[in-house]
Design a protein around this nucleic acid. Structure first.
Lengths: 120, 120
DNA sequence: TCCTTGTCTTGATGAATGTCGAAACAACAG
DNA sequence: CTGTTGTTTCGACATTCATCAAGACAAGGA
């Protein structure tokens, strides 16, 4: 876990819009519920919620910085990161030896908008 | 499912505050992650997400209005509603024959604030 | 009182999930 | 090329979960 700062982060591109207060305004359709539920489910585990939070708190984070914060095997951490990735909540990229993760703010934001109350 | 409108809804009381952008600002603690994850998990099932949405779309809803919208046994619906109740996302009350559910906007709002990006 | 209707609880069961250890893969340094 | 370190994948296992059918409970009407 050394010399991480010598690896320059790549540029990320902006966002997509999201309906505001959608949960309360109009009942979500069956299709929407099946699309959104896995994203909430990905956040529905304490380990993954902390992982997402740690990743969101910095522009990007190396797995090697995250792992020591959990008393879990590297396989388990990798499995949880994969779940977050498949939910679209985070992106990842290998740069040399290390793998870096970043949050996808649009997805987070769309969930936030969905759950917002009295915003419009 | 008749004459539901003759049953007057009870009054609900206001909210509690929630930290904004907490997910990104400071990593959530282990304790917080264990408190919050079950709430996300409750929303992490398509049936429960639709249930929450249907309940949120009206001041309150009778179970008898919800059930026919799902092709599931009443036991299963009741089980999912219990999960939402235990997560604190909804409240319920029996009035005579029927049981009514309403959303708890504070909980929804605190999740929304937690996930919000660039709000402050 | 008994019956009907609405809701919840209780097993039971197959599927999904979280975890580990071990093996595999990737990148780099000698 | 060989060894080392970081990360992911694989196989196995115990636990949790979504669902149903059936029974229990609650409230009101005949």
């Amino acid at each position: 876990m050394t010399r991480l700062d010598t690896l320059a982060p790549a540029g990320r591109e902006p966002a997509t819009a999201a309906a505001c207060c959608a949960l309360a305004k109009t009942p979500v359709s069956v299709a929407e519920s099946e699309r959104l539920a896995p994203i909430f489910k990905a956040l529905g585990d304490p380990v993954r919620l902390r992982l997402a939070s740690l990743i969101a708190a910095a522009p990007e984070v190396c797995v090697c910085e995250i792992s020591p914060l959990f008393e879990l095997s590297s396989g388990t951490i990798s499995h949880h990161l994969k779940t977050l990735r498949e939910a679209g909540l985070v992106g990842s990229e290998r740069r040399g030896t290390y793998v870096f993760y970043w949050i996808e703010p649009e997805v987070l934001g769309s969930l936030s908008a969905l759950l917002a109350v009295d915003c419009c």
